[in-house]
Design a protein around this nucleic acid. Structure first.
Lengths: 140, 140
DNA sequence: CTAAAATTGTAGCCGTGGCTACAATTGTGT
DNA sequence: ACACAATTGTAGCCACGGCTACAATTTTAG
């Protein structure tokens, strides 16, 4: 049985995850937009993508810049740093695994898409490995 | 392929979920504490449980009271309303299903406990049903 | 080239979930 | 009863992710 400290730790970790969820969503989106026809990612692209105001995007991009995930200049595009690209790649892979897993489990694709969005940030490497294994087994 | 609007909707939903996560965690915790040896749930119990200050708990409890999930009087215990008890029961069941599912999948119990904490709030009824089905099949 | 449109930045507000510090209340132990 | 401990409330601060309104800049159209 878990101790009270362990329960508190679990919750603390859940909160810490929260802080990085936005960062993960944004770097993932930036990578996708750069890879799209758009070619480059602008604040406006992110605002549309997340359906928020450009002001909200600006503030979050500023934070990501502070954290070294993106680089940007006034009125310029949003560029991923090396760290940002690394994080984006990791998130994209994890996202795809979670989505594929849910679909393999029998969840309708539209619902799997929504759930994957929420779940992906809380999946540990161990759980992700089990997800991937399950998908592989079903694929044979 | 999903439209941009659908992608934005997915993110909006993810954000809305965020808002209710705290509420769910708290009513669940209140129900557990009330059911424990403690017998009643006080602000101090929640503060220890989530490893936050009593001030943070007070503010959140006040919000839950505004939302009709709990009732409380100055210097008194935190009581669940009917709506609060209903939500707590739903969350507890969902939490247990997610945990059991991860364990059935092969995730170590300690890691499953952490992941379940983060995942439970983002599982749709459809996905939860698949989780439950999977657990049942493995149990035979 | 200049004027209008689109984009981005800035100022200032809100609610949520964190905190410390201090005040008030309740509970306990002589 | 009274003092001390524990608990809860209040004041006031912070960062984050939202917003509107307005200013600045860049892009695009004429």
């Amino acid at each position: 049985m878990p101790t009270k400290k362990q329960i508190a730790d679990r919750h603390r970790r859940t909160r810490r995850d929260h802080a990085s969820e936005t960062a993960e969503d944004y770097v993932e989106a930036v990578a996708e937009i750069v890879a799209s026809e758009a070619g480059e990612c602008r604040v406006a692209n992110l605002a549309k993508r997340f359906d928020v105001s450009h002001v909200t995007v600006s503030k979050i991009v500023a934070r990501l810049a502070r954290e070294g995930l993106v680089e940007t200049e006034p009125y310029g595009p949003v560029l991923l740093t090396v760290a940002g690209r690394r994080l984006a790649a990791k998130c994209r892979e994890r996202h795809e695994t979670v989505y594929a897993f849910l679909v393999a489990l029998g969840v309708p694709t539209d619902i799997a898409a929504v759930d994957a969005e929420g779940i992906e940030h809380h999946v540990s490497p161990q759980t992700l490995a089990q997800f991937a294994k399950f998908v592989e087994e079903r694929a044979e």
